[in-house]
Amino acid sequence: MARFKKGGSRSVPGINTGSMSDIIFMFLFFFMVITTIREVTLEVKIVAPQATEVQKLEKKSLVSFIYIGQPRKASLGTESRIQLNNQFASVADIQSFVAAERAARDESEKNFITTSLKVDKLTRMGVVTDVKQELRKAGAFKINYSTRKQGKKTD
């Protein structure tokens, strides 16, 4: 190293990296706050359709999800299946699912549960209609069709 001062054999002080961890921790907390941990492992393939008029779902804790799509495992065929929590379910299970979701919430929040339908875009409406009918019977009227945001079309 080039030395400009004569004689002094001072060593370069090491850079203090102690605050580095604080910065990374800040990053960590930031990501923990803005992201959601995947609670379920998806057993079905879901590619959400795109739409322009989307609204954000508020209050994550008040959303329960129903997944509909083709099974990931090829051995289970290509027929669209319903997934509730971590397993495949049938249309008849939806009412008890809604009841269980209600029971898990506070008394004051029970009426504000939104059911988010995460449906693959290749699904036929028959299954979706059946699910919607069951939701109506179960009294879960607030639903949300999960979609991806698409830029405004310019035509």
Binding site: T35, K56, L57, L135, K142, T147
Partner: peptide
Amino acid sequence: SSIDTDQGITRKLPP
């Protein structure tokens, strides 16, 4: 974790 915020078209089903 996933960053994708849940968004979509909200509807109210009739009784």
